[in-house]
């Protein structure tokens, strides 16, 4: 299968200027690649840099050195050196992000939150609405909540709205930051099913999963960040 994402010798340290200039090295020469239809799980103890690496893949964190290349519309784009405009474009049509935290916007309904990414790429409103409803149904978000703004939803409901939003577009690359954290087993397996479907249609998936059962279900390979010299395990 075709490679969609490749990280080459990615290093990052945090410099805390207002705390005595403390330097925290987090990523050291991280290198891996992900193919279509494959799920790479970032593995390692808390604080090993999984989250930092995932955020760097989305352009949310800068890196000090190395390249993060994504195939987008037939070309390779290096996120580590791309302009903000290019990254925004990439996020619209190539890289999807699902985290457990929904950034709630006042007065925007759950349905609109889910539909938005599809509308942003010029999708038909009717189709977007239909797809959003299907996803919310699959993730067991009660239909009487769909027209409401998620600000008053429970944490689990907000999380599932966010997951629906992440899966409304068939992104070629999906980044998942503990999408099943704090979900019950029914909902967790609904998410696993969505991930499996994404893989089947050829998405390259990179994720963090603390739940070992979910991890075993979705992972094709693990990338271990615990050890100093990060190596890919087959």
């Amino acid at each position: 299968m075709e490679t969609m994402l490749r990280a080459s010798e990615v290093s990052k340290r945090f410099v805390l200027h207002n705390q005595g200039g403390v330097e925290l090295p987090v990523l050291k020469q991280a290198s891996f690649s992900v193919n279509q239809g494959e799920c790479l799980v970032l593995n390692g103890r808390s604080g090993s840099g999984k989250s930092t690496l995932l955020r760097a893949l989305y352009g949310n964190y800068l890196v000090d050195s190395g390249r993060i290349e994504v195939k987008t519309q037939g070309y390779w784009l290096d996120i580590a050196s791309a302009t903000p405009r290019a990254i925004l474009q990439l996020r619209r049509n190539t890289i999807g992000w699902v985290s457990q935290f929904l950034r709630v916007i006042p007065r925007v309904s759950a349905l609109d939150v889910v539909m938005q990414p599809l509308l942003d790429v010029g999708g038909d409103a009717k189709h977007a609405k239909h797809k959003a409803q299907q996803l919310l149904e699959r993730l067991n978000v009660p239909s009487h909540l769909w027209a409401l703004a998620p600000a008053t939803f429970s944490g689990g409901e907000q999380q599932r709205v966010n997951i629906a939003r992440g899966f409304i577009l068939d992104y070629p690359v999906l980044l998942l930051d503990e999408p099943t954290a704090s979900l019950d087993s029914t909902n967790a397996s609904a998410v696993v099913e969505l991930i499996d479907q994404a893989k089947q249609r050829g998405a390259a998936v990179v994720g963090i999963f603390h739940d070992s059962q979910v991890r075993e279900q979705v992972a094709d390979r693990l990338y271990d960040l615990s050890t100093q010299d990060t190596t890919v395990q087959g």
Binding site: V15, H17, N18, G59, N60, Y61, L62, P84, I87, L88
Partner: peptide, 21 residues
């Protein structure tokens, strides 16, 4: 300067770090 979420989540300059924190 940079992408909004990047500047706010991973600020580089001492002043931006102070502002965000």
């Amino acid at each position: 300067s940079g992408l909004t979420d990047q500047v706010l989540d991973d600020p580089q300059h001492p002043y931006t770090q102070l502002l965000v924190s």
